[in-house]
Design a protein around this nucleic acid. Sequence first.
DNA 1: CGGCAAACCTGCGAGC
DNA 2: TGCTCGCAGGTTTGCC
Length: 280
Amino acid sequence: MPELPEVETVRRALAAKLVGRRITRVEVRRSDLRLPLPEDFAARLEGRRVTGVARRAKYLLIGLDGGGVLLAHLGMSGRMLLFDGAPPPPGPHDHVIVETDAGTALYFNDARRFGLMTLSDEGKLASHPLLRHLGPEPLSEALNGPALAAALAGRNATIKAVLFDQRIMAGLGNIYICESLFRAGLSPRRRAGTVVGKRAERLIRAIKSVLGQAIAAGGATLRDHRQPTGELGYFQHAFAVYGRQGEPCPGCDCDVTRTGGIRRIVQSARSTFFCPRRQR
DNA sequence: CGGCAAACCTGCGAGC
DNA sequence: TGCTCGCAGGTTTGCC
């Protein structure tokens, strides 16, 4: 499911239910996630109080008293599900269950197991192997047109491929890259190094606006993403190009039977959706 | 180093 | 109905 807006939506839901609560019980039902869970995972969590829930790129950072941090990534299919009453019987993909003194149960569910959970210390977060190479947050003030242009300078790969590189900017995935390039009017096949000046300005503004609107909509629900409380996100209805192959481009008023509408191509084994007339 | 493909694992929808 | 195939929102590795 999850790119930055979906993870941010999850963060907010977790923060509302977990902050200030004490963890009473942790059950590891399956420890072979993308990285194996630490041996003492449950023991290090039980009895701790949750001090905050933060996000870095697509990672969730659950702060604990005593300085520990539970680091979680949802991969492609990971979900965090919150239950206030009696939780349902765990299914085969409910890998970790965390219960609090407020009677809340949190299920970490991940069919494909590309997600992970691990433990770190607050002081070591910046140098943590999973976080250390991440580029700036797209929504941070520091990331503006000139900063983006500088990061893209000299890159000969396509802008689509380079935006996937989490070292350039961290948090975008296939959907929001497609949508941002559409809003910016840039072809996904353009060389990244040519995105300078006004183009870089347009691109960073597009990225920030798409992400901001997606967060406000509770993220996008494709297949199975939902918020931890069960509500659906609805930003998928606002997609201009993603998954809309053959549909009319919302920015052009040309005849779809002649132009073919939104195009789908494959770049580094991932689908790219774009309007060849509007994006250059 | 840059750029790309494949691998990791499971589920689902489309098409036959 | 039931099978096979292709495809899926991420990240890492390995190859050229």
